[in-house]
């Protein structure tokens, strides 16, 4: 008697849990789907109530983001394509430099014991905690004085700074996964430490470097707080540009939805690259070290 009641109870709770998981999935993924659908709507369909699920696709949002077609000459799309190019350039260069520096620093932290190493690692970790607006009060003046305000160079510096700590920690994790015997054997055989690092160890962490680059690119690509305060006209990134896309006619929703999708696509690509290392990347290498 009690056994069957327990069974029925277990059955019921299983179904409730499943329904809740389904609801959460809708809450989680629905908005992203909705953005993709909305980005293909014309201005009129965008504001239709009830919302339309069947509509004639309209690409004016994308035209204005890429600066092509009829939307090119509309006042609201001026400079949007430039900002996309700024984002691409800054994220790419910033990622490259950050991964380069992080690889070097991560290798040293993985292989050598030296005075102040713990302090250095904590210092690096602190960049993950730092509230951007706090240092921005100072950067705002410093960038103006150094001529870095509103320039690509300044944004690259920010992209490197935001990511170098993360890159160091993640790369240290990947180097930790390579046995120290690799270098020991190389040195015994008369090769230099540098040779062992460049020719033996680096090729073994290729995958790690790619994953690190994936993380850095996503964070550089999404970076908003620094770019929004430190740029005014010439060097706006795409996230900054769309945040100021409210013109005389109100917020340019067709453009924002399309820009949103354009901003998501590279994230999807790089996300695929890093999916196995998410735990490590999102916790700054604190967890999920392999």
């Amino acid at each position: 008697m009690t056994a069957t009641r327990n069974q029925a109870y277990a059955h019921l709770s299983r179904w409730i849990l499943l329904v809740l998981l389904g609801l959460y999935t809708i809450y989680n993924l629905g908005p992203i789907l909705w953005l993709m659908i909305s980005s293909l709507k014309s201005r009129a369909d965008l504001f239709a109530m009830p919302p339309k699920l069947v509509f004639e696709p309209d690409f004016s949002g994308y035209q204005s983001v890429f600066g092509v077609g009829a939307a090119r000459d509309s006042a609201s799309s001026v400079g949007v394509f430039d900002s996309l190019m700024t984002s691409v350039f800054v994220s790419t260069v910033g990622t490259t430099v950050a991964v380069f520096l992080g690889t070097l620093a991560g290798y040293v932290c993985s292989r050598f014991e030296f005075r102040g190493k713990g302090d250095f690692m904590f210092f690096v970790l602190s960049t993950r905690m730092l509230p951007p607006v706090a240092v921005l009060v100072f950067y705002h003046m410093m960038f103006a004085r150094l001529g870095l305000a509103d320039t690509w160079l300044g944004l690259v510096l920010i992209a490197v700074f935001v990511n170098v700590g993360l890159a160091t920690w993640i790369m240290k994790g990947f180097f930790d996964g390579v046995p120290k015997e690799v270098e020991q054997i190389a040195i015994v055989n008369g090769y230099s430490r540098i040779y062992a690092f460049l020719r033996l160890v680096l090729p073994m962490v290729k995958g790690g470097i790619a994953a690190t680059a994936g993380f850095c690119f996503i964070f550089a690509w999404n970076e908003f707080a620094f770019a929004s305060i430190l740029t005014t006209t010439r060097a706006k990134t795409l996230p900054v540009k769309i945040s100021t896309a409210s013109g005389a006619t109100g917020i340019e929703w067709t453009q924002i939805c399309a820009a949103g999708v354009v901003l998501i696509i590279p994230v999807l690509v790089f996300f695929y690259l890093i999916r196995r290392h998410l735990l490590m990347g999102m916790t700054f290498g604190v967890l999920g070290r392999r």
Binding site: W221, I242, V267, M282
Partner: peptide, 9 residues
């Protein structure tokens, strides 16, 4: 996915 998106988006 959501945590990898730009907070502005």
């Amino acid at each position: 996915l959501p945590m990898m998106l730009s907070p502005v988006v």
